[in-house]
């Protein structure tokens, strides 16, 4: 596709620059950082990024620094409402405490997806590989 097409929606990201944003990636990671740059493919630059993990009503975060994210991996870019953020009814705990729980969650999800893919393949005639390829 023509790569020199003028921006429209990705162009409207201009008012999100220098704001605190949430980026959800296709592998399920949630990154919170300040959006510094972007282009029409939704390639993004995030500064002062922290990664957050969640388990039920607790979360933990870890500082991960500067990110240049290739657009194809972006699921969603959300603008954080700073007022609402203070009222979020979640409790923060240490990263190392929550990590095992988070790993359990992701492993379970992965197993479920694999099982689903297997059933779809064996009983419903779906192709074996890929599917949507977006089991994030």
């Amino acid at each position: 596709m023509d790569s020199l097409i003028p921006f429209t929606t990705s162009g409207s990201l201009v008012d999100c620059v220098d704001r605190k944003m949430l980026v959800v990636l296709r592998d399920g990671r949630k990154l919170f950082g300040v959006l510094r740059s972007y282009d029409q493919f939704a390639n993004l630059v995030l500064e002062d990024t922290v990664e957050r993990i969640y388990h039920q009503d607790v979360f933990a975060e870890q500082w991960v620094g500067l990110f240049l994210i290739r657009g194809e991996n972006v699921v969603l870019l959300g603008e954080i409402d700073l007022d609402r953020e203070d009222e979020v009814p979640l409790k923060q705990v240490e990263w190392d405490v929550l990590l095992p729980y988070h790993k359990l969650d992701t492993d379970m999800k992965k197993r479920r997806e694999e099982f689903k893919a297997q059933v779809l393949h064996e009983q419903k005639g779906f192709s074996k590989e890929g599917g949507e390829g977006d089991g994030y």
Binding site: L22, K30, D57, L77, R84
Partner: peptide
């Protein structure tokens, strides 16, 4: 925006506007 089943997606609670990539 309003996310259905917010309990399953707690990271979305504080988000008011969002940009969604067409491919997803």
């Amino acid at each position: 925006i309003q996310v259905s089943d917010e309990a399953r997606h707690p990271h979305m609670i504080a988000v008011k506007n969002c940009f969604i990539r067409g491919s997803v």
